[in-house]
């Protein structure tokens, strides 16, 4: 594939054809905030925290999805781009509970001087979490509507289509059909939505309980990579242990067999390891 050359903040950058602006920025050690962009998913293009200025384009462009053209001139740090990213972060933080988004994002907020308190009004914060079973929790007060779970449950990974975006505008929300409880829906409990959720809105029950109780402690956790004990496909698993007990099981998103996905047995079927009649 041919290489393309572009200018980012005055410096010349060369990237393979098909790279996005974000790829190009990262290729030279830079970075931009992102939320809806998932490494295993097509860009959803919706959160708009990654916007940059491209000369010649009227509006700002999403760096996570805009593919580089030869000779493109990109500015990531203009007042205009920063203003927009800042307001968007403020809007998000004023409308949902971002407390469990990863640390990188809070660093971005700080870096941009975002002040969510400027905007008050309607918020989904405080909505009760949906706890319908022992496997995972949907704590939608934390949902930023990034579409990642819908895309993962849908055509891009799982193809079960148990969840969708329903409603419109500020009322848009992630829902099962007619908002029925999860066990009544089409959900197959693969947890592949959990794997892509950037906000902690979707979380394994054990992890969620521990976070609620304040006992979840990443610093005391170890991750061991192994292979699922069930069928013969060979899915890789990361076993997360805290003080010798399994607290979560995930799959590495850079493993080509799973891309971070598992089925119900792989993700949740491990409790036999800790069951009592051994």
């Amino acid at each position: 594939m041919a290489d393309l050359t572009l200018t980012i903040d005055g410096g010349t950058v060369t990237v393979p054809e098909g790279s996005t602006i974000l790829d190009a920025v990262r290729s030279v050690g830079g970075d931009l905030p992102t939320l809806c962009h998932g490494p295993t998913l097509e860009p959803a293009n919706v959160c708009r925290v990654c916007m940059v200025e491209v000369e010649g384009a009227g509006a700002l462009v999403p760096s996570c999805s805009r593919v580089v053209d030869e000779g493109m001139v990109v500015h990531t740090d203009t007042d205009r781009a920063r203003h927009s990213r800042t307001v968007v972060m403020e809007l998000l933080a004023s409308s949902a509970d971002l407390e469990r988004v990863d640390d990188r994002f809070s660093a971005w907020m700080e870096d941009h001087g975002a002040d969510p308190a400027r905007f008050t009004g309607a918020t989904i914060e405080g909505r009760p979490a949906k706890v319908h079973d022992d496997l995972y929790v949907r704590d939608y007060a934390r949902c930023i509507l990034c579409y990642r779970c819908v895309d993962a449950c849908g055509e891009q990974h799982q193809n079960t289509f148990a969840i969708t975006v329903a409603g419109r505008g500020f009322d848009a929300h992630i829902s099962t059909e007619f908002d029925v409880a999860l066990p009544d829906s089409a959900c197959v409990y693969c947890g592949n939505c959990i794997a892509v959720c950037p906000t902690g809105a979707l979380e394994g029950k054990i992890a969620w309980d521990m976070k609620e109780a304040g006992t979840w402690d990443i610093d005391r956790q170890e991750v061991t990579r192994t292979v699922c004990s069930y069928c013969g496909v060979g899915c890789n698993l990361d076993i997360h242990t805290q003080e010798g007990a399994i607290v979560d099981v995930t799959s590495p998103e850079d493993h080509d067999v799973t891309l971070g996905n598992l089925c119900i047995k792989g993700r949740f079927g491990w409790s036999f390891v800790v069951s009592v009649d051994e």
């Binding site: 905007f119 008050t120 009322d171």
Partner: peptide, 20 residues
């Protein structure tokens, strides 16, 4: 705010904040 499709944050939240 009624007619926003709700996809993108500046419009979904921004139109509501504008009204408020």
């Amino acid at each position: 705010s009624d007619e926003s499709c709700g996809q993108c944050v500046p419009c979904r939240v921004g139109t509501v904040r504008q009204g408020e």
